[in-house]
Amino acid sequence: MHNFDYARADSTRQAVSSHGPDKQAAYLAGGTTLLDLVKIDIMRPEQVVDINRLDLKRIETLNDGRTRIGALVTNTALARDERIASDYAVLSEALLSGATTQLRNKATTAGNVMQRVRCPYFRDGVSNCNKREPGSGCAAIEGHNRSVHAVLGTSEHCIATHPSDMCVAMAAIGATITVEGPEGQREIDFLDFHLLPGDTPEREHALKPGELITHVTLDAPLDNSRSHYLKLRDRASYQFALASSAVIVTLEGDTITDARVALGGVGTRPWRAHEAEAALKGQKATEATFQKAAGIAFKSATPYAHNAFKIPLGQQAIVRNLTTLTA
């Protein structure tokens, strides 16, 4: 790792000012991504701004029914929060399906949003990788691309999955990300936050240089909804999703009146499946309906040499989740 300057911020304004608009700076929250990547020399910040003392550790219910989560709320605290567990079960379940207890105790809400890809070619520091070295190419496309590579939202420049479980649940729930930057405060729709790789896989999110996430505000829960996160992988714990689904549904009798479907492990960003949702709304909750919606969710999928199985697996994640929720 390279040595860096370290500053500890006592206020958001101070943090933003210490960071500056310089790309060679990084905010330090739980450190579970940043420190790992610094140690293996993949991220080389010159300036690290420790934000752990900021007053961003609260979960608040707003008057309009939304829930505002401070950037530094740990994954454990968020998952175990009673309001989250009851009103946003899918989020609590997603968080608890991720990583390990130790990591969840350190990892923060904003840090989870900001986590980097697990693609081995990104992390080896040697292979061609357009994220690490724009223009060098993508070693994964014709390389080993089984578990942490996507079938949705890929481009000829990058096929790495976004690894988060939490973000998949948030994509289904709907949320707003509040950021503070050199030019002040602004809000970003959660679904606009993570960018498709396209021609610029080095651009992973909508933050402008120096901006700091201060809160994630969840949309109010759907009335009378049920939700569930289903994560499929090789081993039963401590593995990134091969395919996962976050599903929220409301039912009248056996008719689906509203549905939210988001996918993990298969997309280059937390993947909201709008067209699949449209195929569910107003339909009877039957296996045929679920299968059809699942097929629609993957109709634009691109399989690669080792991950083609994610296309049927992702569909299974949708169908089983809906089956469980509507049973």
Binding site: R118, P120, V126, S127, A139, V148
Partner: peptide, 19 residues
Amino acid sequence: DARNGRPVNNNYAEYVVPV
């Protein structure tokens, strides 16, 4: 990697042992 013999999953996260 079949192209260059480089180990791909040489870490505890991606080399999967039972937990």
